[in-house]
């Protein structure tokens, strides 16, 4: 007879504080993310110059006290471009997570509750999942042109099926619960059952899933830029910086490695945060993962 943890009585803030102490990695990841978000927001005020300013003279200068991260082959300041790149990366992560979670939630709920549509929807999702995500995105970008919006949509589409499957699985298991049957028996209408009894069960796993989607989206965005199918080259994204620095890698490795490692750090922080949230919000899955 185990009593489940409740967030109702004691202070939520205190509980999170206690959680941070017991999960130091999650706390560190949270701090890193906050720093990155602040850096992205405050980029113009952090000793940066115009990220697109081409400067012929100091080309490929290694990192130094004057230019912390050095400059690239066009003489652009790498520190500046890294900070502005954070804007793109974080924005893509956020947008893709929001879009794929909300669309996936909608489609998953429909699929889980309308048996007739279910078969069709799930076959389409199986089909979408069989197309390797990066290739699907490459295909979408190459027929619709590379812009920030199309790239974001192209990254969102392959993420949707996983969310749909997750939501559908939850819906199918929750609708078997006696408390849902009891709600049916007392005459609660289907939309209200979905809202009251099913949706609250989807929220914690979806928050966790959202962090993983964001991490994977940031990765895909960089890969697309790196392969030349991402945001237009004039946008200073981390992927574009690396794609351009590739040719001069043997002479000026920092042009690739600095945005690369920043990207890795950002994704790592999001992933670790996701694991922490999972432990906090979804202990049933956490025990298994």
């Amino acid at each position: 007879m185990q009593s489940r943890s409740s967030t109702t009585d004691t202070g939520t803030l205190a509980k999170w504080g206690q959680f941070c102490r017991s999960h130091p990695f999650t706390a560190v990841a949270g701090v890193i993310l906050i720093v990155l978000v602040l850096a992205a927001l405050l980029a113009p005020y952090l000793g940066t110059v115009d990220p697109r300013k081409i400067n012929i003279l100091p080309r490929m200068r290694p990192p130094s006290p004057q230019a912390w991260f050095g400059s690239d082959q066009l003489g652009r300041d790498v520190w500046t471009r890294t900070l502005y790149g954070a804007r793109i990366s974080l924005m893509v992560g956020l947008m893709v997570a929001l879009m794929s979670i909300s669309l996936g939630l909608l489609i998953g709920m429909i699929s889980g509750y309308m048996r007739k549509l279910d078969a069709v929807i799930m076959r389409v999702m199986d089909g979408l999942m069989s197309i390797p995500g990066i290739l699907l995105a490459i295909g979408l970008v190459s027929v619709s042109g590379a812009s920030f919006i199309t790239v974001t949509i192209a990254i969102t589409v392959p993420e949707i099926p996983r969310v749909v499957r997750l939501v559908r699985a939850i819906v199918l298991s929750v609708r078997e619960e006696p408390y849902v049957e009891a709600a049916i028996a007392v005459g609660t209408k289907t939309p209200l059952i979905l809202w009251r009894h099913v949706l609250p069960n989807c929220v914690p796993p979806l928050i966790v899933q959202a962090t993983y989607v964001a991490a994977s989206a940031m990765l895909t965005e960089a890969l697309l830029s790196f392969l030349g199918a991402g945001t237009p080259p004039e946008i200073p994204s981390w992927g574009n910086m690396m794609a351009e620095g590739r040719i001069v890698f043997p002479i000026a490795p920092w042009i690739v490695l600095i945005p690369g490692c920043t990207l890795a750090l950002a994704i790592l922080a999001v992933n670790v945060l996701g694991d922490g949230l999972r432990d906090r919000l979804d202990p049933k899955i956490a025990k298994r993962m």
Binding site: A215, P250, P253, L268
Partner: peptide, 25 residues
């Protein structure tokens, strides 16, 4: 598990370039 999370987070090409830098160059 820490290595596993690292593996998820490291973009393939960043790892590739790190390897090239170290073992190749």
């Amino acid at each position: 598990m820490v290595f596993s999370v690292l593996g998820f987070s490291f973009p393939v090409f960043v790892l590739g370039y790190l390897l090239i830098y170290e073992f190749g160059l």
